[in-house]
Simulated scan of single mutants.
Amino acid sequence: MSNNNFNTNTLRHLKWLYSGMLGFSASYFLVLLSGYVQLSESKMLTISTILFSIALPLFFILALFHILVEESNTSPEIVQALTETSIADKMTKTAFYSVFLAFVFLIGHYSEVAFFTFLTSSAIGFYFAAPTFRKLVEANKQEPNFNMNLISFSIDYVDTNGMNIQYHGHKY
């Protein structure tokens, strides 16, 4: 087994993740059809719409890429090299940040109290989770055979005896 995060399960998970996020972003616009009048009256809804407009084509491109990769049986090593480029990283981060912020502003459209509550609880959650995330990153740096990809829920570990331990997503 190679020592990298990418394998066919990882690629399949990413395909479904990006397709799901694409559907989520597209559904926003279907719901917006019934509330189009509110768009001109709410700055938060306008910002949310712009952010979903950014996320929609990016998730489409990411989903399409992973569908084509899976259909063409491209090796995981080639896909990893393609996706570890600066532009791929920026595109992925922009898509996820856009949909996250779009959702935050959508909450703000319905209630300013909920908006500030969401921001506060998110900040507190990240504050307390940050030490754990740092430990995971450090463990990944110190153990060359341990690779973790949080987005695809894929963990591969090859111990020094050559025993493979693999976890590839939740079964339920």
Rank of each mutant, 00 (worst) to 15 (best):
residue 12 R to K: 13
residue 14 L to R: 10
residue 14 L to E: 10
residue 14 L to F: 04
residue 15 K to M: 15
residue 15 K to F: 13
residue 18 Y to Q: 05
residue 19 S to L: 09
residue 19 S to P: 07
residue 19 S to W: 03
residue 19 S to I: 04
residue 22 L to H: 08
residue 22 L to S: 03
residue 28 Y to N: 11
residue 31 V to W: 00
residue 33 L to Y: 00
residue 33 L to C: 05
residue 33 L to I: 12
residue 36 Y to S: 15
residue 37 V to H: 08
residue 37 V to P: 08
residue 37 V to G: 04
residue 39 L to A: 07
residue 43 K to H: 05
residue 44 M to E: 09
residue 44 M to Y: 08
residue 47 I to L: 07
residue 49 T to R: 06
residue 50 I to E: 02
residue 53 S to M: 10
residue 53 S to C: 10
residue 55 A to D: 03
residue 58 L to P: 00
residue 58 L to V: 02
residue 59 F to H: 09
residue 61 I to M: 04
residue 63 A to F: 01
residue 67 I to H: 01
residue 69 V to C: 01
residue 70 E to N: 09
residue 71 E to L: 05
residue 73 N to P: 11
residue 73 N to Y: 10
residue 78 I to L: 09
residue 79 V to T: 10
residue 79 V to C: 09
residue 82 L to C: 12
residue 83 T to D: 14
residue 85 T to Q: 14
residue 86 S to A: 12
residue 86 S to F: 15
residue 88 A to T: 14
residue 88 A to W: 15
residue 89 D to T: 13
residue 92 T to V: 11
residue 93 K to N: 14
residue 93 K to I: 14
residue 97 Y to Q: 13
residue 97 Y to S: 10
residue 97 Y to A: 13
residue 99 V to K: 14
residue 100 F to Y: 09
residue 105 F to C: 02
residue 106 L to E: 04
residue 110 Y to T: 03
residue 110 Y to V: 03
residue 111 S to I: 01
residue 114 A to M: 12
residue 115 F to G: 01
residue 116 F to R: 07
residue 116 F to W: 14
residue 121 S to T: 14
residue 122 S to A: 13
residue 122 S to W: 11
residue 124 I to H: 09
residue 125 G to R: 08
residue 126 F to C: 10
residue 127 Y to N: 08
residue 131 P to S: 01
residue 133 F to G: 05
residue 134 R to G: 01
residue 134 R to V: 11
residue 135 K to I: 06
